[in-house]
Write a protein that binds this DNA or RNA. Structure first.
Length: 282
DNA sequence: AAATGTGCCAACCGCGACACG
DNA sequence: ACGTGTCGCGGTTGGCACATT
């Protein structure tokens, strides 16, 4: 007996999601939270398979997602984590809050891979490409490795002494990086130390984000939106940026989401509406 | 202006892991 | 222990946007 398809093929839509479908999915998740994905399309009134809904939510609609290209620090972190974890994108993504495995995978294949190859580093092994062929070139490649700026004790690619690293102010994409971003990146990468049993344990078993993170259920996150609108703090899952994105994208009417259900009382709803109106006037 | 090439990214597919009866 | 259903992961692809000829 063959494996059952993940969903009923008949009448299941495929391809790009429409604004209407996004709206339905967001509305459903915000109202009900994430539950059995298989049941989501039916309950949300979508002609999609549950798998597709989950993917759309996790890779695109989730309110805590960062948009845009990976920062230099994030890129370096990805390189270092890839050296340790290989193509375990979900593990890598777990340490970069607001980034998805798909996004990191795509960025790796389209940008980082090319950069590493250009620098003479094998993107799979993180070793110099022509290590065996020409020993004379090895030093050259090691010079390149320095540019990746990985702490001496950390990466398999780290071939420099600690003093060399300290003296090196060249970063991965040296042309555009500032001293500050270098230090910042180094600080991030310095959080790794493969001799540290605790960190190794974290890498093996835990997905604790390394920069910052708070992915909470959307409904709970609305408390943060309300609070932030009063206190002007911006560290919640649904910070101003995510909020703006949600308002901007797809030209939704905010009330179409059924957000009203998310508020405990009229005062909270009023605060939310005020913020929504203010954003619209911008 | 049209044809062709290239890069990028959202989405799909298939498989393995896991939970549960 | 086994079968079945569900979920999540990683590899791959389709198609759009932009660049080049």
């Amino acid at each position: 007996m063959g494996r059952q398809p993940c969903c009923d093929k008949l009448g299941v839509k495929k391809g790009p999601w429409t604004a209407e479908e996004d709206k339905k999915l967001i509305n459903f998740i915000l109202t009900n939270g994430q539950c059995c994905w298989r049941a989501v399309p039916k309950l949300a009134g979508l002609r999609r398979c549950g798998k597709s809904c989950r993917l759309r939510w996790t890779n695109y609609l989730r309110p805590d997602l960062k948009r845009g290209l990976l920062s230099e620090a994030e890129e370096k972190l990805v390189i270092d984590l890839h050296a340790r974890l290989g193509n375990r994108w979900s593990k890598i993504a777990a340490r970069l809050p607001g980034r998805t495995d798909n996004e990191i995978k795509n960025h790796w294949n389209t940008h980082i891979k090319k950069k590493l190859l250009k620098m003479g580093i094998d993107p799979i092994t993180h070793e110099p490409l022509n290590k065996e062929e020409n020993p004379a070139d090895q030093n050259k490649n090691n010079d390149h490795q320095l540019e990746v700026v990985v702490p001496e004790s950390t990466s398999v690619t780290a071939a420099a002494t600690s003093s060399e690293l300290e003296n090196s102010s060249t970063s991965f994409s040296s042309a555009s990086s500032s001293e500050n971003s270098y230090n910042e990146s180094k600080l991030v990468l310095d959080t790794f130390n493969e001799n540290d049993p605790l960190l190794n344990n974290l890498l093996e078993s835990d997905d604790t984000p390394l920069i910052d993170s708070s992915w909470e259920l959307p409904i709970k996150s609305f408390d943060n939106i309300i609070n932030n609108s009063n206190s002007h703090k911006t560290s919640s899952s649904w910070d101003d940026e995510s909020f703006n994105w949600l308002l901007d994208c797809q030209d939704f009417e905010i009330h179409d989401f059924g957000f009203d259900n998310c508020f405990n009382n009229d005062v909270e709803l009023e605060v939310f509406n005020t913020k929504y109106d203010m954003e619209n006037k911008k």
